[in-house]
C-alpha cells in the first residue's frame, strides 16, 4: 500500500485549504475555463500580461484537493515569469506528474512543484493535477475555447 501521504503532502493540503491568488481578477487581459468532466473540477484562470511577462495570475472555481492545490501552487510560481518560461514549466510539470521526469530538470527549477511528484503513482489523478496547467498553456498559446481534459 502506497501511503496516501505521498499524494496528500502537507503543502498540497495547505494550498487546498488556503488557496493562493484565489480571486476574480477584474482587470485580467484574458481568462479561460478549465473543466474536467470526469470529476466535475471546474476553474477559471485569469491572466494579466505585461508584454511577454505574466504580471498577475489568479483563479476561481472548485474541485478536488489535487486540482485546487495545483492551481494555487502554479499561480505562485508563474507570476513574473516570461511566457516561454511558463510554457517550459508546463512541460516539466507534465513530465513530473506522468512519471517521465528525468535528469534534465534542475531540482531548483522544480521547487515547490516537487510536491506533486507523488501524483505519478496515481494515474487516475494526473488530469486533476494538470487541469490548471493545461488551462494556462491554452491561454499562453491564445486558445479561445474552454479547456477540457477529455
Amino acid at each position: 500500500m502506497t501511503d496516501v501521504r505521498a499524494l496528500y503532502q502537507e503543502v498540497i493540503l495547505d494550498h487546498n485549504k488556503n488557496p493562493r491568488n484565489f480571486r476574480v481578477m477584474e482587470d485580467a487581459d484574458q481568462f479561460l475555463e478549465g473543466y474536467n468532466p470526469l470529476c466535475g473540477d471546474r476553474y477559471v484562470l485569469y491572466l494579466r500580461m505585461n508584454g511577454e511577462t505574466i504580471s498577475d495570475v489568479s483563479f476561481t472555481g472548485s474541485g478536488c484537493a489535487i486540482s485546487k492545490a495545483s492551481a494555487s501552487v502554479m499561480s505562485t510560481i508563474v507570476k513574473g515569469r516570461k511566457r516561454e518560461e511558463a510554457l517550459r514549466l508546463f512541460e516539466q510539470f507534465h513530465d513530473l506528474v506522468t512519471g517521465h521526469n528525468d535528469s534534465h530538470i534542475h531540482p531548483e527549477n522544480l521547487g515547490r512543484l516537487a510536491v506533486f511528484a507523488g501524483v505519478s503513482e496515481f494515474p487516475a489523478r494526473v488530469k486533476c493535477a494538470s487541469l490548471a496547467w493545461h488551462t494556462l498553456k491554452a491561454i499562453l498559446q491564445e486558445q479561445k475555447t474552454a479547456v477540457t481534459t477529455e
Partner: peptide, 14 residues
C-alpha cells in the same frame, strides 16, 4: 472534502 479525494484514499485501503 471532494469525492475524488475520498475515492483515492479509500482505494489505497483496498
Amino acid at each position: 472534502i471532494h469525492p475524488h479525494d475520498i475515492g483515492t484514499i479509500l482505494d489505497q485501503q483496498g
